[in-house]
Amino acid sequence: MPSQEQPLYQRIYDDIKAAINDGVYPPESKIPTEAELSELYSVSRITVRRAIEDLSNAGYLIKRRGLGTFVCAPRMRRSVLRGGMPRSFTEICHAAGYRPSTRLINKEIVTARPDEWEFFGMEESDLLLHIQRVRMADELPIFEENVFLPYEDAKTLTSKDFSGTSLFQLLEEMYGRQPKNYQRVLVQSVGASSTRAGALQISVGEPLLYVTAYALDQYDKPLYIGRQYYVGSRYMLDL
């Protein structure tokens, strides 16, 4: 007759999940190692590993190579591909009770790539303004934001400080243009490079959701291209 006793890995799963929910292991904290949990529960490391993997799949934990296993920060949600523009990151933070902030990484004039020529209707020799920032919630990096705008249309933005400013608000105030819809959105999974991992405070190779969005303004004219790298363990996109 099959035993009705709770599997050992399930007990470990339930205990760690309860500890996370009760604040014993706060977001971004490191949990005990597999060896420590194996000794604590008097079970094999295989049993512990199964519980850890299930907790990771459920969004409670994330493994960082060479560093250990950490508690995921509560994930905010943002909808894309469902018609219209999503709420701004600032609005999402406020709704979730977080304090939004921004760190400017770079602001530069660059040459356009083929998809950018096509979207903006540019010549190959035309230039773009590239604004690269890290967006944070309660000082925790959530994603790297890269925005590209035609330089001739947005050259006055080069003098602006983007470290604590809403780009959408500036576009509306200075040019009377608002992002209203996407022409198309491309989504793929990539591993964090060493530079990106440092900026986002994650380990090299950690999964990122790479989203390229081609935004139109209220007149259905091309406004900007956004290339964002979201930390999957901290931010959830509803596709």
Rank of each mutant, 00 (worst) to 15 (best):
P2T: 15
P2E: 15
S3Q: 11
Q4A: 14
P7A: 04
L8A: 09
Y9D: 14
Y9M: 07
A18I: 10
G23S: 00
G23K: 10
G23Q: 06
V24N: 07
I31D: 02
P32K: 04
T33Y: 04
E34H: 02
S38E: 05
L40A: 10
Y41I: 03
S44I: 01
I46L: 15
T47L: 09
T47F: 01
R49T: 14
R49F: 07
L55W: 08
L55I: 12
A58Y: 13
G59K: 13
G59E: 09
G59P: 04
Y60G: 09
Y60C: 02
I62E: 11
R64K: 15
R75E: 14
L81W: 00
L81P: 03
G83S: 06
G84S: 02
M85V: 08
S88N: 00
F89S: 04
T90C: 02
T90G: 00
H94S: 08
A96L: 01
Y98I: 05
E108P: 02
I109N: 09
R113Q: 14
R113E: 14
W117V: 08
F120G: 03
G121A: 05
G121P: 03
E123I: 08
S125N: 11
Q132I: 04
V134G: 12
A137N: 03
A137D: 06
D138A: 05
E139P: 03
L140G: 07
L140S: 10
L140H: 03
P141S: 11
I142Y: 04
I142A: 05
E144I: 14
E145K: 05
L149H: 01
L149Q: 00
E152C: 01
T158G: 02
K160N: 05
F162P: 09
F168V: 08
L171E: 09
E173S: 09
M174D: 12
Y175W: 11
Y175S: 01
P179C: 10
K180M: 12
N181V: 07
Y182M: 09
Q183N: 03
V185I: 12
A192C: 08
A197C: 08
G198P: 12
I202P: 11
V204M: 03
P207A: 13
A213Y: 02
Y214N: 02
L216I: 13
Y219R: 15
D220C: 07
L223S: 07
Y224L: 15
I225A: 06
R227Q: 14
Q228K: 02
Y230N: 01
Y230F: 10
V231R: 02
S233K: 13
S233F: 00
R234V: 06
M236R: 15
L237K: 07
D238N: 14
L239P: 02
